[in-house]
Amino acid sequence: MILKSKVAGKLLRIMLISSIIFAVISLVTTFLFVYNEQLYLKIYKFDQFISVFYMILYYLLIIVYLVWLYKAHKDLVELNTMYPITPKGALARVMIPIYSLWGMWNVYSTMYDHFRPIKSTEKLGSQLKVFIPFYYFLFLITNGLNRVLLKSNTGLYEVSDILYLVSYSLDLILLFVFLKMVNIVMKALDLLMVVKQDIIDDTQDVSGQPKVSS
């Protein structure tokens, strides 16, 4: 058996690492914007280039994430037919407004509930549990902050430049947290597949035929 989410997971990991690199660069340019305007004006064009690249990368990251989430749930259902969230259900949980407030937490807490009772994934489950609140609240805070900053750009009200720095810092932390979570889920899926393979091997004889008990 081959995990369907393997390629999407690795791709997501590359995209996340690329996003982290660009988030670090954006954080540095924002720091200069806030604390050294003269120097910032010299790298203004470079910052524009990074902003465009990062913005498009962010949207591509969302698409890759949704593909991975769908395939990871396909694997979870295939590894355990009793798994309570279907691939489409997982997408609905993170994509539907308001419902996602509950769904975003539920998707990962269900994974934790699933990993915890199995010996080989118990530790990974515990690690995932630690990251869920960080991911959840950071996601909500950064989303809220980005909305505030976008509205301030339209001149509706003024905000401190420091808020930009805070927003980029939190974005960076969120990407790190999310990368850790993706790594945990991918490792756990690998281990679950090994467990499943062992069960299949135990129930088949060397010729691949089901073992018959006497």
Binding site: V7, K10, L11, I14, M15, S18, K45, Q48, F49, I50, V52, F53, Y54, M55, I56, L57, L60, V64
Partner: peptide, 23 residues
Amino acid sequence: EKKEYSLAIILLIIPLIAAVVMM
């Protein structure tokens, strides 16, 4: 040989082209 790397390169070219066009 690694499918994910080829895909990642293709995906990273998209923002690169967009950034060049926008600049």
